[in-house]
Structures are given as structure tokens and as C-alpha cells.
Write a protein that binds this DNA or RNA. Structure first.
Lengths: 340, 340
DNA sequence: ATTAGTTGTGAAAACGTTTACATAAATCCA
DNA sequence: TGGATTTATGTAAACGTTTTCACAACTAAT
């Protein structure tokens, strides 16, 4: 009862059908050369033996890297944005019989490297990576070693590679524009980790909106250290303690938004009357917040889909020109910024 | 430039060090029998060749299933609870050089089956599964075929298997008790999908609390259909429309909580003065809600850790008695239920 | 009737490991 | 000194595939 059945292999099927393993393999791979009669016999044998191909052996043998295993390197699986991306990827993979190996490296380059090593030695057919920073040597090496790689969320500064990302600058612009049109003149920006390219792009959008509407940019209220909750809390405290308090805050990601939200509530300040807030990254619970949060929605699911589509293409034609896909963002206007 | 380097194999290293591949393999596996001198030579060759073991070949050859690849079947990766579980598993895997393949089957048994097939033919060394329902034949087959399996969140009704889960009944009891002690007499319960075992356990806790405090149980305000957002919205609407409106709602998971929250806010009802709410499943953004949400915290991270520990043990000793680990829950009292 | 071309199948190598077994060299004990 | 034992290494099979090559059995063409 507890003893593992030995699973059926090509050999099992072959002897059952009275043919060689080569023939069985041919049937499995739809080679038209086999006679109908033998094909039928083999198919019967496959059924009765309960044979399932061994993907490990296939991968070991085959140079014909056929999108069976995709490696995924995610900076932070707690971030709902990446969860959307994962879902997009996984949906496509499921439909194509691919499996996905996920490495969640928690923004830790050391961990990222270990996962790259593991995935590489698992002979994955391709990688989808959000590089930990713009100049990610491990990912660069991966590419120069000839692996199929698609970057999401962030590109690589000195390498031409397939990239799928949001239009961060435009997204930030829209958010700040919304605030400005609502009459806000003093708008703070809590940024993410300055080392991350997206952070820079969002800052650029923030500044562009100010310039476009002839508003002065005050560098003192553009602050940020890390892209996490505590950083959001800290900076918000500093901002709210300012003599000339901002009337609105634009936060650069959902963790920062959360930190800001909690701090504002703790200080008993009313949203949006006393402080308005708009966040980058929409989240599925934004509508259940009180008040519902106005936010820049990134289409994570679509980003994931584009990424794996590109990856499939790159696997098939390794020499095609790298594509740069920019996915639009969408400003979800709810009630945290006040009404005209 | 674009051509893939051929990667170093045992053979490369062997010829570089002037030994046989067997010796290289022995060095890699720490076999004490090799002479120090050769060991050094081999290690040097490994360095200079940039050799990395090929896990695919290892897995194909080795019967000594050494926890190198773990298959993970998750019902819903959007649910933060499972994300915590994944993190717990992944943390441990990372520390032990294991990789994790994730299949997110979105509560779809068909999809679950496909992933089981894939993972199986990837020869994963063990499975961690949250079965889609209590009588999950695919998982049962997996076990009876001799695979190492640990269940999380839900057990299997007619099979003895390692299980790690929360103390759902106690958790629900505590939540409802909290409400009762605050003076609530009419407490509704929005349940999850009745087919899922956890749903039943949480209902049991709800009823137990009522009995324990001598409160009448009104079956009409124990309702639920599915474990998702829309179901939460629907049932909340029905509940709030009742002539004798409940003063408090106990929701059975975080998606339902969200649906309830949004509905309550839309109807302009004050929390907790007009309706109190306590949810099963704490989420990291619960403190940023307005008011902060009182919730039953499941220790997802720990559940994940226990699960993979058990799995490692089972891989090593397939015949050990199955363990049943119940992880305590914790009631996070915040402000959504009112004050004494 | 011989040759040339088709068609279907099998034998065997290869992928990169691990490991049982064989063997050569070195050491031991009588 | 010679057989037995130990020590270090190499040889080769095996895991389950894919794929090249060879070959047998037909069919078609001369």
C-alpha cells in the first residue's frame, strides 16, 4: 500500500504495444510517419499503462527548449501588484501546459543571485525577472549567456532586453494633475527607494505636472528612503509636522500609501478635508477603504501576460529585436482627494 | 556574443582536473574517500570552469530524493493568507537550497489536476497542497502513489495525511465571544463556501460561542455561498435589509470582509456604532482601515514553515505516522467592534 | 529481374548525473 | 615474501527521453 508504484515509462508502453521506444516517442510527438495501425496500438498501450511523460528526462535530453518551465523572479510577493503580474503569467502558462517556478527574493540581491543559479541549473526555458536594480549584473550575465529573459517593471540600464512596464511618469503626472485641478497647491511626494528606476520615473512625472501647471516644485516635500510601510509612516510624520503642512500627499507605492494612511488616521486628520491622498498602485481593497482611495492603477495582469508572450517569442526566435512594451496606467478616481 | 556558451559539466571539470567524472562527483558530494590532493585539484577545476551542477540530471538519476524541488498547490494566490503561507515555505526552501514550483489553481479542480500532473512529471520531491475540497481524489491518488504530501489549511476526510492548519473553531469562537462580551446579542455570520471544511469549522465556533454564553442561534443570519468578494456584498445587503438588523457581523474570510465593508460604507452606516464587524483573516492593511479592523489572525507564515518542515521529514522517513498540526489563531482587537 | 526510391521501424547514442563494481596501488600481517 | 586488506580511483550502467542512422520490407521504375 505504501510502496510507490513504479511509474510507466516509454519502455513500459513499448513492450506493452510490442514496438520499440522510438516508435512510442514518435507517436507521442505526433510524427506522421508511423503507420495508423501501430499508432493505435501504441495509444492503447499509453492509456492502459497510465503513462505520463517525464518532463525531467525531456528537459535533460532536449535542446528544443519548448516552453515547459518558466523561471520567475519576483522582488516582493507581498506586493499585490506583483501578485497580479504573477497571475497574468501563470494564466498564460496554464493555458500552454507550462509550469512556473517562482523565486521571491524580497529585494535582496544575494537571494536573487541564488535563485538565478537554481533556476539556471533547473534548465528553465526562460526567465521573467524584475531586476533588483537598474544595473543588475546577475541578470545581465544571464542574458549574455544566451538565456531567454524578459524584464518586468524595470529595465536594465546598459543592455538591450525585452521589457514590459507601466508608464510610470505618465501615471504620476495624472495623479498629481488630478490633485492640482482639485485646487491643491502644496503637494508632497513620498517616494520609494531612490535606487529603483521606477522611483525616478514617478518623481519625474510629479515634477512634470508641477511644471506643466506652473507650480513651484519644493524639493523639501519630495522625500523617500525605502519602498516599505515603515518608510511611509516615518516620512508622513515628518511631512505632517512641517510648519507649512502639505494639503495633499502623493505616495509612490501601495506600501507607502498604507503607512501614510495609518499615520494620518492616528493623528486624527480627516481625509480628504485636511489631507488628501493619492497613491501609486491600486489595490483590490481600495474601494473598501474609508474613504475609498484614489489611486493610479497599474495593469499588473496585462503586464504579466505581455511578458510571457514576449518570452515565448524570444525562446522561439532568440535573435529578434528586443521589444519595449509600455503599459498604460489608469487613474481610479474615488474619494480620498476631495471633490471639486 | 549571442551564442550560448556550452556550460561546464562533470566531464569538463574531470578533464580539467585530470580525473574521472566519478571522482568529481565524489568531491561534489563530500565523499571522504578522495585523497586531499585530488580533492584540491578538483575543487580548483570546479572554480576555474565555473561549474554548476545540473539539477535536472541529478533529479533524473537520483532515487535519493533530496528536497531539491517542492511543488506547491495554492487555491488562490490573491488571498494574503496564502501569500503568507507561501512566504513561510519559501523562506525555509531558500535556506535549504530548495526551489519551489507554484501552481495557483484558483479553486478550480480541473486546474488543480493539471498542475498535479505537471508537478508529478517534473519529479518534484514533495507536495504541499491545500486541497480544493475535503474529498480530493487527485490528492488522494498522489498519496497512495507514494508521494510525499503535506496538506495545509484543509485536511482530507478519508485519508490519514500530514496536515497543518489553523484552529478555526477556536478562532471563530474567540471572535464571536469578543462581540458578545461587548454586549452584542444579534450577531450575523457570513460564511464561506459551505463545501470547504474550514467553513464548517468556523460555523461550529460561531455556534459554540453562542451556546457557551446562552445566546439563541438564529440560523437565518448564518449565510454564505462562496468565499469571494461579491458573495460578501450580496449577503451583507440581505443582512442589512433585515427588519431586525444584526448589530454585528462576523465574516469568515478576508474577501467576504472586504465585501461587507464596502457595502456598509456605501449605505452610510457607521462602524462600529451602527454595525460592528469582525473578520476571520487578519491582513496587513487592517490597521490602515478606518476604523482599524478587529480580526482573527491566522499565522500563515508559521503554517507554511510547519508544513515544509513536515514535508522534509516525510521525504526522509516516508513511513512515519502522519502529524496533525493545529496552529493557534490570535484575535487582533482594534476598533471595528466598538468599546466596552 | 534488377535497381532505385519509399515507408515504417528499430538500435543506439546522447543529455549530466549517481553509484555499484572492478581494479590498481599501497599497506599490512604472517 | 606473498597473500590479505585497505585505499583511492576509474569504468560502466542506469535514469527516461529525443534523435540520428541504419535497415528491412515494399513499391515503382527501368
Amino acid at each position: 500500500m505504501k510502496t510507490a508504484k513504479t511509474v510507466a515509462s516509454l519502455k513500459t508502453v513499448a513492450s506493452l504495444a510490442g514496438v520499440s521506444i522510438a516508435t512510442v516517442s514518435r507517436v507521442l510527438n505526433g510524427d506522421p510517419v508511423v503507420k495508423d495501425e501501430t499508432r493505435l496500438a501504441v495509444q492503447r498501450a499509453i492509456k492502459t499503462s497510465g503513462y505520463h511523460p517525464n518532463r525531467v528526462a525531456q528537459r535533460l535530453r532536449s535542446t528544443n527548449r519548448s516552453k515547459k518551465l518558466i523561471g520567475l523572479l519576483i522582488p516582493d510577493i507581498q506586493n499585490p501588484f506583483y501578485v497580479d503580474v504573477i497571475r497574468g503569467i501563470e494564466e498564460y502558462a496554464y493555458a500552454n501546459g507550462s509550469a512556473v517556478v517562482i523565486g521571491n527574493f524580497s529585494q535582496d540581491p544575494k537571494r536573487e543571485k541564488l535563485y538565478i543559479d537554481i533556476l539556471r541549473s533547473e534548465s528553465v526555458d526562460g526567465f521573467i525577472v524584475a531586476p533588483s536594480h537598474g544595473k543588475d549584473e546577475d541578470v545581465e550575465e544571464l542574458i549574455s549567456d544566451g538565456h531567454a529573459v524578459v524584464c518586468i517593471d524595470r529595465g536594465l540600464s546598459n543592455l538591450n532586453v525585452d521589457v514590459v512596464k507601466s508608464d510610470n511618469e505618465k501615471g504620476a503626472f495624472n495623479a498629481v494633475e488630478h490633485l492640482i485641478k482639485l485646487g491643491h497647491k502644496r503637494i508632497a511626494h513620498i517616494t520609494g527607494d531612490p535606487a529603483i528606476p521606477t522611483t525616478q520615473e514617478r518623481i519625474a512625472g510629479y515634477i512634470a505636472a508641477h511644471k506643466h501647471y506652473g507650480l513651484r516644485v519644493d524639493q523639501k516635500i519630495i522625500k523617500g528612503k525605502e519602498s516599505n510601510f515603515v518608510s511611509g509612516v516615518e516620512i508622513t510624520k515628518q511631512l505632517l509636522a512641517l510648519p507649512e503642512r502639505p494639503t495633499a500627499i502623493f505616495t509612490a507605492n501601495n506600501l507607502l500609501t498604507l503607512g501614510a494612511l495609518e499615520t494620518i488616521l492616528q493623528q486624527g486628520l480627516k481625509i480628504p478635508e485636511e489631507v488628501a491622498i493619492v497613491g501609486f498602485d491600486d489595490v483590490y481593497w481600495a474601494t473598501s477603504l474609508n474613504p475609498p482611495l484614489t489611486a493610479v492603477r497599474q495593469h499588473g495582469f496585462e503586464i504579466g501576460q505581455r511578458a510571457i508572450e514576449l518570452l515565448y517569442q524570444r525562446i522561439q526566435q532568440p535573435d529578434r529585436l528586443p521589444a519595449n512594451v509600455i503599459v498604460k496606467t489608469e487613474l481610479m478616481i474615488r474619494r480620498s482627494c476631495g471633490f471639486k
